[in-house]
């Protein structure tokens, strides 16, 4: 475990916590006659979180972590897998089923079809994989799908005029996690013998490039001290 990998995992964890915090705030604000300003913003505007992206992530973790009960790597590894599985499914549950959280979700803006991402990724995983076995194909599928799963969220951000702070932080943390993983691969390539994983690297690189545009606007909004807004 190197510092880049640990930092990457921690930013990934933080992104999940930011989302859970957001959901918690929406839940706890509802019904108050004089909500705090954060509650007010979160309840008045749509949440800006894409359910489509969250569902894709749940699918990514479910297909990637099939080995959780068969291969033991470390306690750290198992705990993190359980956290990502548990949090992704509970976030989906909250947005779909929780009375108040569901109301803050803007279904009409979040129109991306899962199908357009899932099917090509599945086909690609069937064609390009390291070993043609059930577990390996699903694992490869999870890599391809993770690479593009952020697209519905980025499209939603572009459509939402007011991006609230937490949603902006969430996407930023996810992008930072990917960028740190690339540094981790570079580090491992030079320090570990036979560390070559083309499928992981290329899909990881594609995934990180998808954030480039967002990063540009995120940092310029920080620099100019204005609210984050993506061009239409």
């Amino acid at each position: 475990m190197n510092i880049f990998r640990l930092a990457g995992d921690m930013t990934h964890l933080m992104s999940v916590l930011v989302l859970l915090l957001k959901i918690h705030t929406i839940k706890s604000c509802a019904g108050k006659s004089y909500p705090c300003s954060l509650c007010f913003i979160l309840l008045e505007s749509s949440s800006g979180i894409s359910l489509k992206t969250q569902e894709l992530y749940a699918l990514v973790f479910a297909t990637r972590y099939l080995d959780i009960f068969t291969d033991f790597i470390s306690v750290y590894n198992t705990i993190m897998k359980l956290i990502f599985l548990g949090s992704s499914f509970s976030i989906v549950w909250y947005i779909r089923r929780h009375k108040i959280v569901r109301r803050s979700y803007d279904k009409d803006q979040d129109t991306f079809r899962h199908f357009f991402l899932v099917l090509p990724c599945l086909l690609l995983a069937l064609i390009i994989n390291e070993k043609f076995t059930f577990k390996e194909v699903l694992w490869t599928f999870s890599l391809y799908l993770e690479a593009v799963a952020i697209l519905p969220q980025l499209i939603l951000l572009q459509r939402t005029r007011n991006i609230d702070n937490l949603t902006g932080q969430y996407v930023f943390l996810l992008g930072a996690y990917r960028a740190l993983y690339i540094l981790n691969w570079i580090y491992r390539y030079f320090t570990e013998p036979h560390y070559v994983h083309w499928i992981t690297w290329i899909s990881g690189l594609v995934q990180t490039l998808l954030y480039a545009d967002f990063f540009y606007y995120y940092f310029s909004s920080l620099k100019n001290n204005v609210k984050l807004k993506l061009p239409a």
Partner: peptide, 10 residues
């Protein structure tokens, strides 16, 4: 042990 190296990432 190559496979294990790959799967140790999240």
């Amino acid at each position: 042990d190559e496979e294990h190296v790959m799967k140790d990432e999240l």
